[in-house]
Design a protein around this nucleic acid. Structure first.
Lengths: 338, 338
DNA sequence: GAGCAATGGTTAATCGTTTAATCAAATGCA
DNA sequence: TGCATTTGATTAAACGATTAACCATTGCTC
């Protein structure tokens, strides 16, 4: 059986309270008993039970992370390595501070709020966007929350994000500067996803600014996964639009698109150029390497953890928003025209 | 403030015990009070605190998952989407049964065993292989454990794995049948990683069986990441060996290798053929598509969870081992010779 | 109507911590 | 020496659940 505080106390010949005080140093203890206690701890291989501690302290040293899932009740979107990387980063920085993370999706049969109560979560990091009821619910809970990549400005949550519009502006600008005039845009569900909407507007802005034509029908909308990228490429080709380049609102889409184009006999960048968004690790290992807008994915996780812990330590912290930098990375998927 | 059992009891005009009995149905309760209690629960939005419950019941409904990390103290190996997929699967099936997962790496400053005690983990799933002290330690803890992809047969743990040797046998056999005779093998650290060692032996067996030559110097050893794949391709080319095809012990390596070969001006499959191992989601979206040995990654997670929960429910369960099926998937990265 | 079992509820101990309130001994100071 | 203060330890309540043991009604049986 596991050793408890009481066991340690007994072995050291002191009271349980004394052991507790020795362990968390909240009171002065004589050098002698401190020694005896620590020796007993060592002998019994004693590790304090965080649950019991949490019950007293009313905390849990647990941070919830909400990740989107394709279908409710479906499994997590770990496929998209964007999420994996953010998660890895969150886990890392949380662990440094003695927290663990509880990853879960918003589930149909159990709201995330219920989970937060059940597990006494100290705080929550929410990645992506959700229906507004979700935020309403969360607000009531009073739990510290940091959003990553959200545009719910009407809610009093902290937010770590990038300037998505500017990102696709960069991508589009680059293609225009390379001499492309007829561009298509591959994107996720614009209505449901603020990030996608913003990225679309950045595309439009750049076109407008450079006096290039924008047509509704050159925006191709799908899910954010490889298969969808392939499909959008098919739809583009079927449309017969005279497109020489495409801006994809996510690397995942760009990668699928490259595959789709290749299967249809088109070569990237010779026949058609493509720029992605995110700079996933895989993107540099494709052939050709994917030219894309880099965001510092793991920095997002780091900043989110820092902000959340700050809020936990300081509950009256006012709403903070941090916008991380972007950078266009030139690789081989774009051809210079003219 | 959150509602507690006591609050519910008060509102319903009964004792706390009664509320508890209503909620977990361990005793008969009159229809009338049952109703009053449930109504109070609804009104207060009461959710039982799992920590407090766990303190009484001495469990936590928490499953630990150990994932390898490149460097101790480094962040989790989420980059490798093999892990992401297993994790997603584990999370999904655990959640179905009311468990949550706690992902963490084996850390230098805190052994996983300490974590297990701290958090009162009900069980642990260990992915990959670790130094033998790790298993020694774990054994003492008495916590139910299931290993995924381990060859520590000397320990009394359950194991979910594939027949790694057979997998690379399949890959190698396929290349030989396509007329290739001069093969190279790209692999992770063979000494430290039983999986890699097995995959190497499968390669050798196939060569022997088909009477093809095996040379020590055609085995290229590195890490298991994209960059390493690129590097191994460079070393292969520098070696000037007359190789027409390579078997990669992991898709990650194969993908990096394809990039490395391409950068050096060689074309896959025209100049050189390549077969991978794992069948990651990305592998089908490469150009050319990667011919590879498919393992059912998410099934691994599912089986591991099932077995672990079975053991938790039935502590005297004897050691179980399950070996999941493999299948060669033909895509475009191999050229038929002759 | 006495005796007994079944039903439906309460009381109180327990799980492993923390910590406010006490208490005893030692020390400082006049 | 006597009194106040400091130091170092203990006692006991609390955190939010579960559950064994107990108690009071009710309903049956003979």
């Amino acid at each position: 059986m596991r050793a408890t505080l009481k066991d340690v106390a007994q072995l050291a010949g002191v009271s349980a309270a004394t052991v507790s005080y020795v362990l968390n140093g909240k009171r002065s203890i004589s050098e002698e008993t401190r020694h005896r206690v620590l020796e007993a701890v060592r002998q019994l291989d004693y590790v304090p039970d965080l649950n019991a501690r949490g019950l007293s302290m009313r905390d849990s040293k647990l941070i919830g992370v909400v990740v989107p899932q394709t279908e409710p009740g479906d499994r997590l979107m770990f496929q998209n390595s964007f999420y994996s990387e953010v998660l890895g980063s969150i886990e890392y920085y949380a662990r440094q501070q003695g927290y663990h993370i509880l990853i879960s999706a918003t589930d149909a049969n159990e709201s995330y709020l219920t989970l937060a109560k059940k597990r006494n979560l100290d705080g929550i990091i929410v990645i992506g966007m959700y229906p507004s009821e979700f935020y309403q619910q969360m607000k009531k809970s009073q739990i510290p929350i940091v959003l990553i990549d959200s545009y719910c400005n009407d809610y009093y949550y902290h937010n770590i994000r990038i300037d998505d519009a500017y990102g696709s502006y960069l991508a589009t600008q680059y293609l225009l500067q390379c001499g492309h005039r007829d561009l298509a845009f591959f994107v996720g569900r614009v209505q449901e996803n603020g990030v996608m909407k913003k990225r679309l507007t950045g595309f439009q802005q750049a076109l407008a600014e450079f006096g290039a034509p924008f047509r509704e029908e050159s925006v191709f909308e799908g899910q954010i996964d490889y298969a969808s990228g392939v499909e959008l490429a098919g739809r583009l080709l079927a449309s017969k639009l005279p497109v020489t380049a495409v801006v994809a609102a996510a690397d995942i889409l760009a990668i699928g698109a490259m595959k789709g184009l290749y299967e249809a006999g088109r070569r990237v960048p010779d026949d058609i150029s493509i720029v992605g968004f995110d700079d996933l690790e895989i993107s540099q290992y494709l052939t050709p390497g994917l030219t894309t807008v880099r965001q510092q994915i793991s920095l997002k996780g780091q900043k989110a953890v820092e902000l959340l812990l700050k809020h936990i330590a300081q509950p009256d912290l006012t709403k903070q928003e941090e916008i991380l930098p972007l950078q266009l990375i030139e690789r081989g998927s774009v051809r210079r025209l003219g």
